[in-house]
Design a binder for these strands. Sequence first.
DNA 1: ATGGTAGAGGATCTA
Length: 256
Amino acid sequence: MKIASWNVNSLNVRLPHLQQWLADFAPDVAALQETKLEDARFPDDALAAAGYRSVFAGQKTYNGVAILSRESARDVQIGIPGFDDGQQRVIAATVGDVRIVNLYVVNGQDVGTDKYAYKLRWLEAVHGWLIKELLAHPRLVVLGDFNIAPDDRDVHDPAVWNDEHILTSTAERTALQKLCTLGLHDAYRLHHDGAGEFSWWDYRQAAFRRNLGLRIDLTLVSDALRPHCVAAGIDREPRTWDRPSDHAPAWVELAG
DNA sequence: ATGGTAGAGGATCTA
């Protein structure tokens, strides 16, 4: 079972890319972020023609998440239960015997801003929710655009992306580690030790060509799924295409 | 520190 996460940065613009990538990569489940579409405009017919059913939670202009799956998704949850959030950043569903939690984590703008405080509050709410979600669904994958690079191997320049910088600050990394302490494992790091493989590159300054990126798109697997996690990686291919998303898909493969 | 680019929407805001 191949499960992937991709921040498409406007599904309206990126639908042709998504269709091509679904055909090439053939994931069983694809979690999307930044669809930037109201639900009435979600291209579920086009995706059904590609062999995928869709569940989604969107809004105009910003945010928006979806889960595509070959097998139909059940028990769909939109948003973090009990957390009043005007932004559509979370959708969860069960596919087969795996629970999927798709997160578009708050960016946070800059350390010390209101948006940064919201990011930390939001991550704390996710933590409280995942405690319960893990009890109800031990076979859990939490994936998405985390807007946090886990450690120095995951940034092109640790001097710039340091413990006081957005996406790498101590409080953000601590919040991510706290999620992992629940019994969630960065699937990429179960299979790769090295530095310099990224999932996001800024559109500016030819960052992709120069590999000035960050690894902020993550697939976390629960304790119960860890023995079944046979591979993980990042598919850079769609980032090379014309008019790409600034993110590349991150994926994990589960055996059985 | 600034600004560089992209998307949405139609001036800025977000990333």
